[in-house]
Design a protein around this nucleic acid. Structure first.
Lengths: 238, 238
DNA sequence: GAAATCAAAACAGTATACATTATAGACTTA
DNA sequence: TAAGTCTATAATGTATACTGTTTTGATTTC
């Protein structure tokens, strides 16, 4: 039931940072099955390094909410409906403001990147390429988020968005949802081009509300029963 | 220039958690001098344990922004004026909403605790007891924050508030500032008692704006020049 | 006396070995 | 057959040792 993920050392810096990057990317790309467990010693063996850097990286991901540590390996957290709505609440509070910032600070190069990502998403939605759509979506968000000059704001947003994104991966391949997202990206992009901070604020608000509604509509209401049992152990208040 | 901090093992759970708690409390209480460095091996020796749990705890604190890791031990981060204003921006976005939540969910016991903390702060301000004032302040905040049902929201707030609190420690002993804070606590408390979410929202907004203004007014504008040099190395985007 | 180079110490990073714990699965018993 | 207990094992937690790098300080030379 586990196994076939291949890790390789990427990026720069010390081993911990390399492993961290690699594992986080794997999670973000949805390549980690829900029940799958990550074991430090296995990954270490695969990379030809010792446990400690791997363990450090995994524990960092736990602290950031990307993983939960159990006594039996690290796995993806199983978010309850409440968790999801909590995360969306924080996003509703932060992202409109951040978008307004981006509307002021995005430069020509950034706008070009955004437009490219937007078109790519549109094309992916037309051809039904879920992976490409997902990638374009991430590129779009990373671009405008990178223009936000308040690092703590943008990093907090990125983290929370990642947390729900992992769960939303399947809903993103839903065709009507893709259409809604593409429309939202277009509206946002227009606000950015016009450097209209107010419009960016409003449209981001709308965008997130849409995302949450779509998610709640598509997500199986069955989950909630056994949610508590499965989930969080070592994730405690720390 | 370093040394005299005494650590002892507290709390429960594994060694890492115990060390984490202890060090974080030390930081939160302002018992760590700005230039002081924390070295894993020293703390480990003092506690009679090995480096690794201590190292884990310190790195967790780095990830959470409480410390920065340099090549020469862990120290407090030196926040620039921009950092401070970035943190306050996030707090302005989150805390009013959280206060509104608390106005709905605080129970009688919570209100009692709040009132006690408020009176304690008032007494401390009157007698000029800075430590007691600081404690009462923390108790007040922890209480209403604990009533917020969105854990991710309250934890994010707590973390950012802690970050600036470390820097604000000195401004909190400023008499006029204490008066402003006491007034703000009273206003907030009244909104909580009336279970008036809107009033809580507005008053928290006002409270934070006041706090930021007070800080900017009292903080030395000299710092900004050499800020970049001193600060963040290993704190990178990770 | 000042500047530059070199050496030693201090500390983080990494590796390996040992201890502890919780879970899964088997085995026993009712 | 089902329920409970016990044991073996898998995985984390902790300890110790070693490596590499950076900083500081001392010594030498100009």
């Amino acid at each position: 039931m586990t196994e076939p993920i291949e890790f390789k050392r990427i990026g720069e810096g010390n081993l911990r940072a390399q492993v961290y990057q690699q594992v986080r990317l794997t999670i973000q790309r949805g390549e980690l099955a829900p029940g799958q467990k990550l074991v430090d010693v296995d990954i270490a063996a695969q990379l030809g390094i010792s446990r400690m850097p791997v363990r450090d990286a995994l524990m960092q991901l736990v602290h950031e909410g990307y993983l939960v540590g159990t006594t039996r390996g690290f796995t993806l957290p199983t978010l309850t409906a409440t968790d999801i709505s909590n995360i969306f609440e924080v996003r509703r509070l932060l992202e409109p403001r951040a978008a307004a910032h981006a509307a002021r600070t995005l430069d020509a190069a950034g706008l070009k990147t955004l437009e490219a990502a937007r078109q790519e998403a549109e094309a992916a939605a037309a051809t039904g390429d879920a992976d490409l759509f997902f990638q374009a979506n991430s590129a779009f968000r990373n671009c405008w988020l990178g223009a936000v000059e308040n690092d703590r704001l943008s990093q907090t947003i990125a983290r929370f968005a990642d947390h729900v994104l992992v769960v939303r991966l399947k809903t993103l391949s839903h065709q009507p949802t893709q259409a809604v997202i593409v429309a939202g990206m277009r509206a946002l992009y227009e606000a950015f081009v016009k450097r209209d901070a107010v419009a960016a604020y409003d449209r981001m608000t709308h965008f997130i509300q849409n995302a949450e509604e779509r998610f709640m509509k598509l997500s199986p209401p069955s989950q909630q029963a056994n949610d508590e049992a499965v989930s969080i152990r070592r994730q405690g208040k720390s």
